[in-house]
Amino acid sequence: MSETGPAIVVSGLRVIRGDRLVLRDVDCTIEAGLVTGLLGPSGCGKTTLMRAVVGVQRVAGGAIHIFAVPAGTPELRRRVGYMTQAPSVYGDLTVVENLRYFARVMDRRDRVRDVIELVGLGEYEHSLVRDLSGGERSRASLAVALLGEPDLLVLDEPTVGLDPLLRRELWATFHRLADAGTTLLVSTHVMDEAERCDRLLLMREGNMLAEGTPAELRARTAAPTLEAAFVALTEPR
């Protein structure tokens, strides 16, 4: 794996939504060319951190640099792919119509076939997205994020509602992409997925609790499993 400096550097990031402090001075670094897992209980700020990385979240303080450029800079829109938690595709269009539209916007029409194969939606490409199952819909949304062959892929719970076989296939795809040099930031709360990450970021209540490889986190807590390590790390002291 090539390491050419960090892909993402977050320093002192604060986000306030309504009257709630969602991120409290978060610092973290995400290495290029690795699959980094973002973990934590629901409501801990994972999605907000991802939105801030993509540049669609209004922030109250701190800085985020993606490939040494401030997050949200127009040139990054070609280099960052984002998949939201709820599938953001048009329900009243077919899979292929959705992809053709986003591909035309990005001027990457050559990629439509490839991404359909990549997420395994070939047999449903002419189905309306609203007629698909939840898992198929989120794969359609993932396909859009893959269209631009981004250097950084930010995926918010991409495997929710997928059967174990498909999940394993998608994780193999993530690692293939990382081997080819793509940086991936993936949020999850499934433990076997956390085990598949190169590095992990653990959050709780808007704070970054721990960073490291799965093995490092297990060693730090002297816990037998990753799950036990997380319980030890996230339990309020």
């Binding site: 669609v56 829109r77 070609r78 984002y82 939201t84 953001s88 990005m106």
Partner: peptide
């Protein structure tokens, strides 16, 4: 509300 606007706003458009 469907998130497609947010997606479009994160693209070169």
């Amino acid at each position: 509300t469907s998130g497609t606007l947010e997606r479009l706003m994160s693209l070169p458009l």
